[in-house]
Amino acid sequence: MSRRVRIATTSLAGCFGCHTSFLDMDERLLRLAGQVELDRSPLTDRKQIRHCDIGLIEGGLCNSENIELLRRFRACCTTLVALGACAVNGGIPALRNRYTLEECLREAYLEGAGIENPQIPDDPELPRLLENIHPIHELVTVDYSLPGCPPPADAIWALLQDLIAGREPVPPLELIRYD
Protein backbone atom coordinates (compact mmCIF):
# COMPACT_ATOMS: atom_id res chain seq x y z
CA MET A 1 0.00 0.00 0.00
CA SER A 2 1.58 3.20 -1.13
CA ARG A 3 -1.37 5.53 -0.55
CA ARG A 4 -0.95 7.60 2.52
CA VAL A 5 -3.64 7.44 5.20
CA ARG A 6 -6.10 10.23 4.60
CA ILE A 7 -7.23 12.22 7.61
CA ALA A 8 -9.88 14.93 7.98
CA THR A 9 -10.43 17.05 11.07
CA THR A 10 -13.03 19.55 12.17
CA SER A 11 -14.09 21.57 15.17
CA LEU A 12 -17.81 21.71 15.95
CA ALA A 13 -18.80 23.30 19.29
CA GLY A 14 -15.20 23.36 20.44
CA CYS A 15 -12.52 25.97 21.06
CA PHE A 16 -9.82 24.61 18.71
CA GLY A 17 -7.86 23.60 21.80
CA CYS A 18 -7.80 20.00 20.54
CA HIS A 19 -6.42 21.17 17.20
CA THR A 20 -3.82 23.17 19.10
CA SER A 21 -2.92 20.01 21.01
CA PHE A 22 -2.66 18.23 17.63
CA LEU A 23 -0.09 20.86 16.62
CA ASP A 24 1.68 20.27 19.95
CA MET A 25 2.93 17.01 18.46
CA ASP A 26 5.69 19.40 17.31
CA GLU A 27 8.48 17.73 15.34
CA ARG A 28 6.49 14.52 15.16
CA LEU A 29 4.24 16.41 12.73
CA LEU A 30 7.05 16.01 10.17
CA ARG A 31 6.94 12.24 10.57
CA LEU A 32 3.16 12.35 10.46
CA ALA A 33 3.30 14.36 7.23
CA GLY A 34 5.11 11.42 5.66
CA GLN A 35 2.43 9.01 6.83
CA VAL A 36 -0.79 10.89 6.22
CA GLU A 37 -2.47 13.23 3.84
CA LEU A 38 -4.61 15.93 5.43
CA ASP A 39 -7.95 16.33 3.73
CA ARG A 40 -10.64 18.73 4.93
CA SER A 41 -9.33 20.42 8.07
CA PRO A 42 -8.94 23.89 9.56
CA LEU A 43 -5.23 23.22 9.06
CA THR A 44 -5.61 22.92 5.27
CA ASP A 45 -8.59 25.24 4.87
CA ARG A 46 -9.99 22.73 2.37
CA LYS A 47 -13.77 23.12 2.26
CA GLN A 48 -14.82 19.76 0.84
CA ILE A 49 -14.24 16.37 2.38
CA ARG A 50 -13.34 13.32 0.27
CA HIS A 51 -13.45 9.77 1.47
CA CYS A 52 -11.08 9.55 4.43
CA ASP A 53 -9.61 6.77 6.53
CA ILE A 54 -9.78 8.74 9.77
CA GLY A 55 -11.96 11.65 10.87
CA LEU A 56 -11.08 13.56 14.03
CA ILE A 57 -14.02 15.43 15.53
CA GLU A 58 -13.40 18.17 18.07
CA GLY A 59 -16.40 19.68 19.84
CA GLY A 60 -19.96 18.67 20.54
CA LEU A 61 -23.15 19.70 18.75
CA CYS A 62 -24.56 23.18 19.37
CA ASN A 63 -26.23 24.12 16.07
CA SER A 64 -27.74 22.83 12.83
CA GLU A 65 -24.48 23.23 10.91
CA ASN A 66 -22.69 20.98 13.43
CA ILE A 67 -25.27 18.28 12.76
CA GLU A 68 -24.91 18.51 8.99
CA LEU A 69 -21.11 18.51 9.17
CA LEU A 70 -20.91 15.61 11.62
CA ARG A 71 -23.20 13.51 9.41
CA ARG A 72 -21.02 14.38 6.42
CA PHE A 73 -17.88 13.32 8.31
CA ARG A 74 -19.51 10.09 9.43
CA ALA A 75 -20.52 9.29 5.86
CA CYS A 76 -17.02 10.01 4.51
CA CYS A 77 -14.75 8.58 7.23
CA THR A 78 -14.04 4.90 7.74
CA THR A 79 -12.98 5.53 11.34
CA LEU A 80 -14.46 8.39 13.32
CA VAL A 81 -12.78 9.62 16.50
CA ALA A 82 -14.32 11.83 19.19
CA LEU A 83 -11.36 14.03 20.08
CA GLY A 84 -11.55 15.76 23.44
CA ALA A 85 -14.03 16.41 26.23
CA CYS A 86 -16.59 18.37 24.17
CA ALA A 87 -17.00 15.69 21.50
CA VAL A 88 -17.04 12.95 24.15
CA ASN A 89 -19.42 14.48 26.70
CA GLY A 90 -20.38 18.00 25.63
CA GLY A 91 -17.60 19.60 27.65
CA ILE A 92 -17.65 23.20 28.84
CA PRO A 93 -20.27 24.37 26.28
CA ALA A 94 -22.68 21.87 27.87
CA LEU A 95 -22.67 24.03 31.00
CA ARG A 96 -25.45 25.89 29.20
CA ASN A 97 -27.67 22.80 29.29
CA ARG A 98 -28.91 23.83 32.72
CA TYR A 99 -30.55 26.89 31.14
CA THR A 100 -33.04 27.19 28.31
CA LEU A 101 -31.72 28.49 25.01
CA GLU A 102 -33.90 31.56 25.43
CA GLU A 103 -32.36 32.29 28.84
CA CYS A 104 -28.86 32.00 27.31
CA LEU A 105 -29.69 34.34 24.42
CA ARG A 106 -31.34 36.88 26.71
CA GLU A 107 -28.33 36.91 29.01
CA ALA A 108 -25.80 37.11 26.15
CA TYR A 109 -27.52 39.62 23.87
CA LEU A 110 -30.21 41.49 25.80
CA GLU A 111 -29.73 41.66 29.55
CA GLY A 112 -26.08 40.89 30.31
CA ALA A 113 -23.69 43.53 31.65
CA GLY A 114 -22.25 46.08 29.22
CA ILE A 115 -24.49 45.34 26.24
CA GLU A 116 -25.10 48.16 23.77
CA ASN A 117 -27.82 48.04 21.14
CA PRO A 118 -29.33 44.84 22.55
CA GLN A 119 -30.67 42.45 19.91
CA ILE A 120 -30.63 38.71 19.36
CA PRO A 121 -28.81 37.92 16.09
CA ASP A 122 -31.32 36.65 13.54
CA ASP A 123 -29.52 36.72 10.21
CA PRO A 124 -30.97 33.82 8.18
CA GLU A 125 -27.44 32.68 7.29
CA LEU A 126 -26.66 31.94 10.93
CA PRO A 127 -27.06 28.25 11.84
CA ARG A 128 -29.96 27.58 14.19
CA LEU A 129 -28.83 26.93 17.75
CA LEU A 130 -29.92 23.68 19.38
CA GLU A 131 -31.80 23.79 22.65
CA ASN A 132 -29.01 21.75 24.25
CA ILE A 133 -25.38 20.79 23.61
CA HIS A 134 -24.99 17.13 22.68
CA PRO A 135 -21.95 14.83 22.66
CA ILE A 136 -21.39 13.47 19.18
CA HIS A 137 -22.15 9.83 20.03
CA GLU A 138 -25.78 10.86 20.49
CA LEU A 139 -26.01 11.55 16.72
CA VAL A 140 -23.57 9.19 14.98
CA THR A 141 -21.63 6.02 15.68
CA VAL A 142 -18.23 6.88 17.13
CA ASP A 143 -15.43 4.36 16.68
CA TYR A 144 -12.95 5.68 19.23
CA SER A 145 -12.85 8.39 21.86
CA LEU A 146 -9.97 10.32 23.32
CA PRO A 147 -11.05 12.36 26.34
CA GLY A 148 -9.18 15.35 27.74
CA CYS A 149 -9.41 19.12 27.62
CA PRO A 150 -7.49 18.91 25.44
CA PRO A 151 -6.19 15.35 25.03
CA PRO A 152 -2.40 15.47 25.43
CA ALA A 153 -0.43 15.62 22.18
CA ASP A 154 1.22 12.33 23.21
CA ALA A 155 -2.22 10.72 23.38
CA ILE A 156 -3.17 12.00 19.93
CA TRP A 157 0.16 10.75 18.57
CA ALA A 158 -0.33 7.31 20.17
CA LEU A 159 -3.88 7.07 18.81
CA LEU A 160 -2.88 8.02 15.27
CA GLN A 161 0.10 5.68 15.25
CA ASP A 162 -2.14 2.81 16.38
CA LEU A 163 -4.77 3.59 13.74
CA ILE A 164 -2.22 4.08 10.95
CA ALA A 165 -0.61 0.74 11.82
CA GLY A 166 -4.01 -0.93 11.86
CA ARG A 167 -3.83 -1.68 15.59
CA GLU A 168 -6.66 -1.39 18.08
CA PRO A 169 -5.86 1.87 19.92
CA VAL A 170 -5.19 1.37 23.62
CA PRO A 171 -4.17 4.65 25.23
CA PRO A 172 -1.48 4.34 27.90
CA LEU A 173 -3.03 4.77 31.35
CA GLU A 174 -1.00 7.90 32.10
CA LEU A 175 -2.40 9.63 29.01
CA ILE A 176 -6.06 9.17 29.97
CA ARG A 177 -7.41 12.38 31.47
CA TYR A 178 -10.74 14.16 31.59
CA ASP A 179 -9.38 17.66 32.18
Binding site: H137, P147, P171
Partner: peptide
Protein backbone atom coordinates in the same frame (compact mmCIF):
# COMPACT_ATOMS: atom_id res chain seq x y z
CA UNK B 1 -8.90 6.41 34.63
CA UNK B 2 -8.03 3.16 36.38
CA UNK B 3 -10.88 1.39 34.61
CA UNK B 4 -9.81 2.98 31.31
CA UNK B 5 -13.14 4.70 30.83
CA UNK B 6 -12.78 6.74 27.65
CA UNK B 7 -16.42 7.41 26.82
CA UNK B 8 -19.86 5.95 27.28
Amino acid sequence: YWLRMLDT
